[in-house]
Design a binder for these strands. Structure first.
Lengths: 143, 143
DNA sequence: TTCCGTGCAAACAATTTGCAATAGA
DNA sequence: TCTATTGCAAATTGTTTGCACGGAA
């Protein structure tokens, strides 16, 4: 559950020699509590409901730390800011360019594509860093 | 060939009611002359070798115009600025996150993945807008 | 002549950074 | 205590915009 993920992240920070501060705890708990992929600004809003004094720069630094430890990731979805999430398991993101809806799909969905690309070009695809854009079911129907 | 693509783009601008200026001609020819995917800054450098007075804002505006007409595209490759190219045909981009090398692959490579995704989720993947990241053959070998 | 296109400089959004003050371990 | 973390404000990077002037058609 969410809190476990937060505790895991905090433990990882401690293990890596970092300190557990109240700011970091607040930021990581807010991130863990969300099932969505949050921009730094969205994350800040949630943190600030309980901890209004946490600085934006601290959020940027924490989120970067968490990524560096391999616990969190950021994804680019369309234009605009990066979006962050704690990772239980790697997954891919489909972002509708019409309505902005995000659909998560399992990482293995890309395996056949990966095999084909690696066998023809030697390139190892590893992309959860960018989302796949297109048109979601609802918006395709309309168009 | 490159000049043809430039002339095509200029013709499309004229057809859409736009004017052909020396700035636009210089920008589009520089873009057409490159096989690479250029950032606005790289494009500017090339334009400036012959036309040093073209303003950066004009390059941004021209490149946006060309995309709006469906002749050019921008792709996001890793972090940093967007990269632009005139489109003969849509293709996908593999970007090595170690060395930055770009490998182009045909758009059809994604067709099986598209089919699977559309049949399971209804989502129509259309993504040449984002590149696929990973590790290229050379860098995989080292690592 | 009539607008479209351009230069310029300022505005912008997202993010990063230097440095002194502060607070975990 | 000792050093990692934070706040603050300024710097950066990439890009967009308002507006008056100048040049295609």
């Amino acid at each position: 559950m969410a809190l476990d993920r937060a505790e895991q992240a905090l433990a990882a920070i401690r293990e890596s020699g970092g300190r557990i501060t109240s700011d970091r705890r607040a930021i990581i708990e807010a991130l863990a509590a969300s099932t969505e992929h949050l921009t730094v600004e969205q994350l800040a809003e949630r943190v600030w409901t309980r901890h209004p004094d946490v600085n934006l720069a601290t959020i940027y630094r924490t989120v970067e730390l968490v990524e560096h430890l391999g616990i969190g990731f950021h994804v680019h979805m369309g234009h605009g800011p990066s979006r962050w999430h704690l990772a239980d398991e790697v997954h891919q993101h489909l972002v509708c360019s019409v309505c902005g809806a995000v659909t998560d799909i399992p990482d293995e969905t890309l395996d056949p594509l990966r095999e084909q690309i690696v066998s023809t070009t030697g390139f190892v695809v590893d992309a959860h860093h960018f989302s796949l854009t297109g048109t979601c079911a609802a918006c395709s129907r309309v168009a």
